[in-house]
């Protein structure tokens, strides 16, 4: 794998807002191919907003976003997805009303190609036998953890150029979290640039080569994971001081 060279994902002074409510103030960082970045911060810091801006769900009000060197700022979400960026959103990221197989087909047909569809489905089922059993069940009938597996299967079978995973391990049993992190390591090995949003700081820092800590929509720290622990602790303690929690 080539490390260095073009960054797979690059943010440059990105600001964003929800209608009148501003959420990001000049966020910059970049991730190389095959590298992993842990995006940390307290609740409401703007981690999910960064993920949404990157994937085009929320438009950037200023700043630039580049995927694989080409500018995607202002492009619609589907066009950004086609440049090879996968965003697994917070919470449910699959279609409740469709079956497991339909969910996989929807994702894999475009990314693996129509001809490789059957083969990539087989690979997904081989990796997660549980999904093979449930392939014709509606996803809405699956447990939250099983739904995450569907999300994971989609990105594992055809690794994207950039994977943005927003709290993918939230609320999962520890053994399943291990699965998730094993999967992250897998896709990373195949050259995917990873952006992992996490509540479990230690897990994320163990995986990451870079850490970004957000506070109130701005970057409080960028650098090696070793330095991030202190900053996170500091940010959290600032937040829990009385009177400062609601300030925006």
């Amino acid at each position: 794998m080539i490390h260095g060279g073009n960054p797979a994902l690059e943010l440059d002074g990105v600001c964003a807002a929800y209608g009148p409510y501003r959420a990001l103030f000049g966020v910059s960082f970049s991730v190389q191919e095959g590298a992993a970045l842990a995006l940390l911060g307290p609740n409401g810091a703007g981690k999910s907003t960064v993920a949404r801006v990157v994937s085009g769900l929320v438009p950037a009000s200023s700043g630039r976003i580049r995927v694989g060197g080409s500018d995607v700022t202002g492009k619609p979400a589907w066009a950004i997805a086609r440049t090879g960026l996968s965003h697994v959103p917070e919470g449910r990221g699959v279609f409740d009303s469709l079956s497991v197989e339909e969910n996989l087909v929807l994702s894999l047909r475009r990314r693996a190609g129509r001809r490789n569809l059957a083969a990539s489905l087989e690979r997904a089922y081989a990796r997660f036998p549980l999904l093979a059993e449930r392939r014709h069940h509606r996803v809405g009938t699956l447990s939250g953890g099983q739904q995450r597996l569907v999300s994971l299967a989609k990105v594992l079978v055809v690794p994207p150029r950039v994977l943005v995973a927003d709290e993918l391990s939230l609320g999962l049993a520890p053994s399943v979290v291990d699965d998730v992190y094993a999967a992250f390591a897998d896709v990373r090995r195949s050259g995917t640039a990873l952006v992992v949003v996490e509540q479990q700081v230690d897990r994320a820092l163990g995986l990451a080569s870079t850490a970004v800590v957000l506070e109130h929509g701005s970057v409080a720290y960028v650098g090696p994971p070793s330095g991030a622990r202190g900053v996170v602790a500091q940010v959290l303690s600032r937040r829990s001081r009385p009177g400062s929690a609601d300030r925006r």
Binding site: G56, L57, A77, F95
Partner: peptide, 9 residues
């Protein structure tokens, strides 16, 4: 929106 994330217009 979820569909757009799959690269579909």
């Amino acid at each position: 929106r979820l569909l757009e994330l799959e690269g579909v217009n």
